[in-house]
Structures are given as structure tokens and as C-alpha cells.
């Protein structure tokens, strides 16, 4: 991993990404505060943040890449490794855990033939755990892409995966 900062400015970012990030810098008092939003902009098209992108964003925001990495690795929804087109975040906090999050994970893994963190062979899915999604009264739940899916059962999971595959 050679990460010496490329001098051809913000190497790896597209002109559109740079423009979008620059447009929001003024919304914040401090460039450190732009970090999450800037990473989201970059992740939107690419699905994940490579080392090169992370360094480029840090350079663009004139903040330390170490600090930016700290933010990126703290945020559950910023991915620092390649993920599938749809990331399934199953909740494993206490209520979902009591009501079967382990079974949800197991079923997902079996259906997609992956382990949490891996990308399915067709490049479609990645399964990751996440902390409480705030829907404990419908546990167990998962965030599938941008959609919150409630009261998961094996059947409903199959349906979600099927729909996703078809869609």
C-alpha cells in the first residue's frame, strides 16, 4: 500500500465530485465537519471509499488524512472496502438479538453464500451488522440499501432477496 500523496491534485476524484464537495464546504464552520458529507458524495457513485479517494478528499478539505480515516472508520455507512451494490445491515443490538438477529444473519449468509463483510459472487450483496436502527418494536430488522425492512422472517428475507435480484 503506497499512499504518498499524488501531486496531480486530488487524484482519483472526478470533477463533479470535487465540485459537489466544494459546494458544501461553506455550509460548515470547520472543514473537519465536512468530512462525512464529502465521503458520502464520493461513495454515492463508487459504493466505497478507496485509500486513494480518502487521501484526495483529505487533501481537498485540507484536513489530515489520519483524521479523515478516523471519521470514515467510525461511520457505519462509510465503506472502506468494496461492497456489493446493496449492503444489508442487519441489526444485532439487544432487542433484535433477543428476537433472532443471529438467525437473520445465518439465513442471509446461506442464501447469498457469503460471510458478513464479503461481496456475493454476482457482486450484488454485502452483509454487515449494525447497531440499533430504532425499530425495536418490529425486531428483528435490517437496512437493505436505503430501505428499512421490519419483522424479518426467513420468508420475508427470501422475498427481499428475490425482489432485489429481479429489480
Amino acid at each position: 500500500m503506497n499512499l504518498t500523496t499524488d501531486k496531480s491534485t486530488f487524484a482519483g476524484l472526478t470533477a463533479q465530485e470535487i465540485q459537489q464537495i466544494e459546494a458544501i464546504i461553506d455550509h460548515y464552520e470547520d472543514n473537519n465537519a465536512v468530512a462525512v458529507e464529502a465521503l458520502n458524495i464520493v461513495q454515492k457513485q463508487r459504493h466505497w471509499i478507496s485509500d486513494q479517494c480518502l487521501c484526495a478528499v483529505a487533501e481537498l478539505l485540507q484536513i489530515s488524512r489520519t483524521h479523515l480515516e478516523s471519521v470514515a472508520t467510525f461511520d457505519n455507512l462509510i465503506y472502506r472496502q468494496p461492497v456489493g451494490n446493496t449492503v444489508i445491515h442487519y441489526c444485532n443490538s439487544v432487542t433484535c438479538w433477543m428476537l433472532g438477529s443471529d438467525r437473520v444473519c445465518e439465513h442471509l449468509c446461506q442464501r447469498l453464500n457469503v460471510q458478513p463483510g464479503e461481496v456475493s459472487a454476482d457482486g450484488e450483496f454485502t452483509i454487515l451488522p449494525i447497531v440499533c436502527l430504532g425499530a425495536c418494536h418490529h425486531a428483528p430488522v435490517a437496512l437493505v440499501g436505503d430501505d428499512l425492512k421490519l419483522a424479518l422472517t426467513e420468508d420475508s428475507i427470501d422475498e427481499i432477496l428475490g425482489v432485489k435480484h429481479r429489480g
Binding site: 499512499l3 489520519t66 478516523s70 472508520t73 467510525f74 447497531v131
Partner: peptide, 15 residues
Amino acid sequence: QVFGIHNNVYFGRFE
């Protein structure tokens, strides 16, 4: 810096 979250935090350098 500190990287990561929850029970899995790491204190170190970017590289």
C-alpha cells in the same frame, strides 16, 4: 488517531 467503533477500536497511524 483512533480508528473504528464499538468494541473494535484501533489506535495507530494511517499507515
